[in-house]
Write a protein that binds this DNA or RNA. Structure first.
Ligand SMILES: [Zn+2]
Ligand SMILES: [Zn+2]
Ligand SMILES: [Zn+2]
Ligand SMILES: [Zn+2]
Lengths: 153, 153
DNA sequence: ATATTAACGACAATCATTACAATATGATAA
DNA sequence: TTATCATATTGTAATGATTGTCGTTAATAT
């Protein structure tokens, strides 16, 4: 079976784009950091390790392109920077996020969970849903476990 | 019964802040545009009509303060600016949004709808939810009605 | 080899947001 | 009243993320 990067290459070709060395380096950084939520600057710094001559503008352009092709999703957690998240292969919808207001950790929820809600929205508001963004802000399991004793204060 | 602005004034006082004329002008602009989703710049321009001497920095600080007090919620629809939305009085949670990718309209969903989902997230992920952001992107009712005939093309 | 064109890299420009320094306002104490 | 202190404001400078420009490069077609 072909690799993930091969399939992304095909997606690019279908849309008449090439997988240049810079684009390949960028995609491979994203693949190596699938768990993370990197900003453009983060990606740039990581890509520079492989391809020191790459320019920041190219990274921005590549991320924009990948967003357009829905290879990545662009998301904003409210801290002034856009972050880029590889879309699960074949996933119809973007996954959800848990942002901890204590430690800043960002966890993912791959389960859809919104099926019923989306049905209601489509029906009651007559709105044709194409995409969504769902983020919960709160206290992650690690932070609340560590501080259980403080509850009684 | 006291007015909305009176109650906001009390909230400020409880937190040891004053409702200065500039803050009052800003809040009143927000009240007059409850349906809209204004950026800081938008608010600034509107407030200047009432108080031409107000500074942009003051508007930013006031919006930050109101966000802290949960009088307004700060939201980002992915177009590079933060927008500010008066929180429904007494609402436990922030309302949801429908963003039309055709015409750009932003509609609101005041219903909670997420009760079950939040219960699942709290239980399965052991995450203590404090707030959320839910936005659907798609085609609004007005845009899909107007273009029904195009479906058959 | 020459022309064409997509893609690059370096750097300038833009735009939202924040930081700063000087001034004003308002309450409190001498 | 006058001095003092804290808070809030203003205009402006600085910052930081993102986008635009432009001359160059690299791959492809003629
Ligand atoms: Zn945490
Ligand atoms: Zn994610
Ligand atoms: Zn529309
Ligand atoms: Zn709203």
């Amino acid at each position: 079976m072909e690799s993930r990067i091969e399939r992304i290459k095909k997606q690019l070709h279908n849309a008449k784009y090439k997988l240049t060395p810079q684009r390949e380096a960028t995609v491979s950084v994203l693949l190596e950091h699938e768990e993370d939520h990197l900003s453009a600057e983060d990606v740039y710094l990581l890509v520079k390790d492989k391809s020191p001559e790459i320019g920041l503008a190219t990274v921005y352009r590549t991320l924009e392109l990948l967003t357009e092709l829905k290879v990545v999703d662009k998301i904003n957690f409210g801290d002034g920077v856009s972050r880029f998240d590889l879309r699960q292969e074949g996933a119809a919808h973007f996954h959800h996020h848990l942002v901890c207001i204590e430690c800043g950790a960002v966890d993912e929820i791959q389960e859809d969970l919104l099926g019923d809600v989306e049905q209601i929205v489509e029906d009651r508001w007559n709105f044709r849903i194409k995409d969504h963004r769902l983020t919960f802000h709160g206290i992650c399991s690690r932070c609340s476990e560590g501080n259980e004793e403080k509850e009684s204060e």
